[in-house]
Design a protein around this nucleic acid. Structure first.
Lengths: 225, 225
DNA sequence: GTCTATAACAAGATAGAC
DNA sequence: GTCTATCTTGTTATAGAC
């Protein structure tokens, strides 16, 4: 519980040494930031000499990119799954988009429970994986141009998913929102910032925060229970 | 308008060279982060040699502390002033605290307009001074222990002010909030994160974002117009 | 108060033995 | 695949002339 986040996100990475380096880098980057972290520190945490790092990753930046990529993919996956119900945003899916806009209210597929589930899951992820999330959210500037573009594309996906839920809810009359895009950004922003301030020593569990934030998001969306 | 933020926050700093260094440091820290910024870069932006920096500041960290301190003081002042009405939070003021809790609704001193004003002003500040705000909010970890404590104390002030407004509103029945502390933190978090994503090139002005966020905060507070 | 020059050191990354 | 040793570069901060 108060354990220092083992982070199963990188469980599939092989060989073993590469995974240990990734884990060490996540912790170091989260604690000190990318630029303040030395390759010696990372290698040390992985129980290796500085030189061994370069067998698995070409540069320190590549290590950061790897973390960012996996982290973003996980959080997008969590959000996507939780936001499922009637339909997600257009571009993200091939078939099944026809159901979008069907004025069906309430039920597991209703926009309100979809929004609540999405926010709760997204917030939970950011709290539970706050170490990874911090790196993922606040060290983007250290990526090189090409890698940065790749990550930004993933981030757009998250925004679109959330915006899709809000749009659906407005269409079905469940939500009352004047500025859908602005509200979607605000909700995203609220969730993301959890990574900045969350501490396992704090007085709330990730799920409690998720539940609170789901309620706040529904209020922001003008959902009248 | 699209000007690169002249930042009048540091207008009073003398001598002139010290102010130019502060301004250069803010820009550099915001663009690249504290650790990735070199003293050569800062001095260069101020039109000086690297050595000249050390006449005005003992270390690079001292420069960061100065920025953080002034920035936090400004944002707390902005929030305090905007949140004024009936009363602010207890500790913050000596006399006048007696009015707190007076079940008076509506008007300029009502909790709803106070919350709206506070959020709008706080958000505006974070957008307009996004360069300074970014440094102030995201480079705290680079401060040494003593300076860090000093800044954290200032931050607590902001939280207390906002929480005070929510408490007053619940007391007067203007707001409907189950978890006041959590909601206050969420509203703060929402405002602060503006510094991360705001861009002068974006489609909204600082005041427009402030207005949107004021509305969102009222919704989060369960304010029923 | 500012400069040029430099001390003192730490960083990322590589070479070559094992 | 990992190590020790090292190259190369760039960093903070200081010394001493002007």
């Amino acid at each position: 519980m108060t354990t220092v986040e083992t982070d199963e996100s990188f469980g599939g990475v092989t060989p073993d040494a590469a995974r240990r380096l990734l884990l060490g880098a996540v912790q170091a980057f989260a604690e000190r930031g990318f630029h303040a972290t030395t390759t010696r520190d990372i290698a040390g945490r992985a129980g290796m000499s500085p030189a061994a790092l370069y067998i698995h990753y070409k540069t320190k930046e590549e290590l950061l990119f790897h973390i960012s990529r996996v982290g973003h993919e996980r959080s997008v996956a969590v959000l996507t799954e939780a936001a499922q119900g009637t339909a997600t945003t257009g571009a993200a899916e091939g078939a099944g988009g026809a159901a979008r806009g069907t004025a069906r209210e309430g039920g597991a597929g209703g926009s309100a429970p979809r929004l609540a589930r999405a926010v709760r899951a997204f917030v939970r992820w950011h709290a539970e994986h706050h170490t990874t999330a911090r790196v993922v959210q606040y060290e983007l500037a250290a990526l090189d141009a090409e890698h940065y573009e790749y990550i930004v594309a993933l981030r757009r996906r998250s925004e679109e998913i959330l915006r899709g839920v809000l749009e659906d809810g407005v269409a079905t009359g469940e939500f009352d929102i004047a500025d859908i895009r602005g509200t979607a950004l605000a909700v995203m922003s609220l969730c993301i910032d959890v990574a900045r301030w969350f501490s396992p020593e704090g007085r709330r569990t990730p799920d409690e925060i998720g539940a609170l934030y789901a309620d706040l998001a529904l209020r922001m969306a003008g959902h009248t229970a």
